[in-house]
Simulated assay, not measured.
Amino acid sequence: MMCAAPKDVAVIIPARNEAERIGACLAAFAGQRSRATVILVVNNTTDATAEIARAAAERDNVDLKVLICVLGPTDGVGAARRIGCDYALRHMLQLRYLMTTDADCIVAPDWIARNVQHLETADVVCGRVELIESEKGILSGMNHALATNEGRYRTLVQRLYARYAAGSAQLGGTHGEAAGASIVFNKAAYLAVGGFEPAGCGEDRQFVRALRSSGYQVLHADDVIVHASCRLAGRAVGGMSDALKARIEGTDYLVDDCLPAADWLVRSAVAGTLGVWPPLVPAERRVHVQDLPANISALETFFRSRRVAKARSTLIARTQRTAWSHPAGRWPGDGLAASAAAPATWDPPGCQQPDLSRTSGRIYIERKLK
């Protein structure tokens, strides 16, 4: 008689009044890794989320454990994730990896497999969050020009962190997200930083910051995909739903709180005090979407100035190597051997030192940004 393979992967899903979506969420795990247990943390719920989840799991042959709890008034989704992780740590003796997503999300068919593959070389994997295709019409009122500017600025900010922030070298060119909709990690990393904070929002990014600050390798994997709902009435104040709603209703909303103003970024990059990705911008320092063009211009100016400084240093080094490097001091075409007493500042014909006085390696920000 064959023994069942030990369960070594726990998938934690917080859920509050998710009767309409939990069936589709769980169905996405059908046929995925047989050694995974899904732990659904149903909290502060007044609908049939738990009953629908159990029926869906039985129908789709998903190994499901339902935890029902009531969170305190100061607790939030972070507390629910923590409860699920703590249950897995206590009851799954062969546990290696913990994964978390949200009840209004649908993971890709290879979500568990790709995460497990990446966890062979990384401690933490942050997946890419895309919108459910059939729901994108909800966002038809969004100003796409403003959204494009925010995406452009985010690319620049991530590029700066990849170059100048500790532990972020692989951030450039990736999605850069750290959303609870798709974060996975090994058991040791979770225990090392003490798990999720019981916050109502932002517990996911805080968790990733703590891991990166502790030296754990964080991978932002573009091939790990989860599709999130476009609903505008979410469960966490300040979460994705609130962000989408602001982008539909407003023309001067605040951009993502992981995108600091350019003046702060430049000062911090030069001083070497950026900290780790993703940052958390205080409410009073967040950037308004209408100010993004000036911020984009400032970061582009910064990158150009760094390239000029690097090119200047390279040109000086090349000139110094060339100035007196030919065998026996002979310069091609002069027909004469150079005197051994030739001054060190001698320049071969046609190779005079260039005037670099007009090229500055210093950084200028043309305008103080808000």
Rank of each mutant, 00 (worst) to 15 (best):
D8S: 04
D8I: 00
V9E: 01
V11G: 02
I12W: 07
E18Y: 02
A24E: 15
A30D: 08
A30N: 10
Q32I: 05
A36I: 08
T37M: 12
V41P: 03
N43D: 14
T49N: 06
I52Q: 07
D63P: 03
K65F: 13
V66F: 12
C69T: 15
T74W: 07
G76Y: 07
V77S: 09
A79T: 09
C85K: 10
C85R: 14
L89D: 07
R90Y: 05
L93P: 08
T100V: 03
T101M: 05
A103K: 02
V107F: 09
A108V: 00
P109L: 13
W111R: 02
R114Q: 11
V116H: 10
L119S: 12
A122D: 12
V124E: 02
V125Q: 02
L131K: 13
E133K: 01
I138R: 12
N143F: 05
T148A: 15
N149H: 11
G151M: 07
Y153C: 01
L156S: 09
V157T: 08
Q158I: 00
L160K: 00
T174D: 03
E177W: 10
G180N: 15
S182H: 07
A188S: 09
E197S: 06
E197I: 00
D204M: 12
A210D: 15
G215R: 12
Q217T: 11
C230H: 10
V237W: 11
G238M: 06
A243R: 14
A243Y: 10
A246T: 06
R247V: 11
I248S: 09
V255H: 03
D256I: 06
D256N: 15
L259T: 12
P260F: 08
A262Y: 13
S268D: 13
A269C: 01
V270E: 15
T273P: 09
W277N: 06
H288C: 08
Q290Y: 00
L292R: 04
L292A: 04
A298G: 01
E300T: 10
R304T: 11
S305N: 05
S305Y: 00
R306Q: 15
V308L: 15
A311V: 08
A311I: 02
H326F: 11
R330D: 14
W331C: 10
A337D: 14
S339G: 15
I363M: 08
I363R: 05
Y364A: 08
K368G: 07
K370Q: 08
